[in-house]
Every structure is written in C-alpha cells, then in structure tokens.
C-alpha cells in the first residue's frame, strides 16, 4: 500500500516538473483588416466642401463611433462625392480604399437617403465588369429638408441582382463591412 502511494507521488511530481508554462508575453494582434474610419467629402461647384466622418478606433470595443458632419448641404445643389476608408489602429495609418479598389468586383458602396432628406446619389465609377463600385459618386440635393444618409459597404454583393447597379441594396446580399448613418440637413 505504502509502496503504491509512493509510485503515484513519484509520477505526479514528474508531471509537475515537466509542466512549466512559458513565461513569454503574447504578441499584440495587429488588426490589418479593421476599418476604423470612413470619410466622405462632398464638394460643390462653389462653396465649402462638406465632410462626413465616422471614426471607431476601438472597432468592436464598447465605444460607439464618433460621427461628425461638418455642415449642412445646400438645397438643389450638385456635389462631387468621394469616400475613403482608413485603418487608424495601425501605424502608419492604412488606406483600405486601395484594397477595395484592388478587389473592386467584390465590393460596392450603397448610399440610401432616409427620413425626409431630399437627395439622390449616382455612381461615378465602374469595376472591370462595368458594375458600379461607389468610391466615386455624385450627390444632388432637392428642396430644403432633413433626414439621414446611410452608407453601407458590402463585401461580395450580387452586383447582378435586380437594381443593385442603381444603388438599391435590397437584392445585393453579401456581408456588411461598414454601415454608418449620418444626420443630414439640407438648407
């Protein structure tokens, strides 16, 4: 009996000795795919450029994105629009827009006016198949009103879906990479 317990303890202590964990610290993870920032510039023929920005530096962390709109839009105006996506969690800051351009057939940006905002968006770019991407666009405003502009970046959408090439997201499918809504005043 005594002998048997000795054997157990001997084997137990062998296990203890062999089981030393590594004391090295784990490496921090660099989230290369993360999109932290979306910047839309709306440039009218005359007057100041309006900037819409959403910045979410902690990604899926608890902090909500900080959303800013630099000013109101003018009624019945025509704006040249461009959108930029950045990953500001890495140094230097990474421009994700370039990655989207490289895979333009697998991405599309959708612009949807909500509330009562009187405006419409027309695509200004095309991928190799002649389908829109949405990195470059034009926005025209109607009468004075207010509402929202929802900007959605879809990954692997069905660009051949009904009306998808006109910017209708209903039949686009795919996965949402970005979905941000901005409050818009048209004066």
């Amino acid at each position: 009996m005594k002998k048997s317990l000795n054997i157990i303890f001997l084997i137990g202590s062998l296990g203890l000795m062999s089981a030393c964990g590594s004391d090295e610290n784990p490496l921090p993870i660099v989230e290369e795919e993360l999109i932290t920032t979306l910047i839309v510039t709306l440039t009218p023929a005359v007057g100041p450029t309006i900037t819409l920005q959403s910045q979410d530096l902690d990604g899926d962390g608890p902090n909500a994105p900080i959303v800013t709109v630099s000013g109101a839009l003018k009624a019945t105006e025509f704006y040249d629009g461009a959108i930029t996506f950045l990953n500001e969690s890495v140094t230097p800051v990474e421009d994700i827009t370039l990655e989207i351009q490289d895979e333009d057939e697998a991405h599309q940006v959708f612009y949807q006016a909500g509330g009562n905002a009187q405006m419409s968006v027309t695509y200004g770019d095309q991928d190799a198949n002649g389908n829109p991407i949405g990195l470059v666009f034009s926005l025209s405003t109607g009468l004075a009103s207010s509402g929202t502009l929802l900007i959605t970046l879809r990954h692997e959408p069905d660009k051949n879906g009904v009306n998808v090439d006109n910017g209708d997201i209903t039949n686009a499918g795919g996965e949402t990479d970005i979905a941000q809504s901005f409050s818009i005043d048209i004066l």
Partner: peptide
C-alpha cells in the same frame, strides 16, 4: 446592442 462602424451588434 453595441454600435460600431460596421453597424450595430
């Protein structure tokens, strides 16, 4: 729900 730039989760 938590809001992120990718929408709400």
């Amino acid at each position: 729900v938590e809001q992120t730039i990718r929408g709400a989760f």
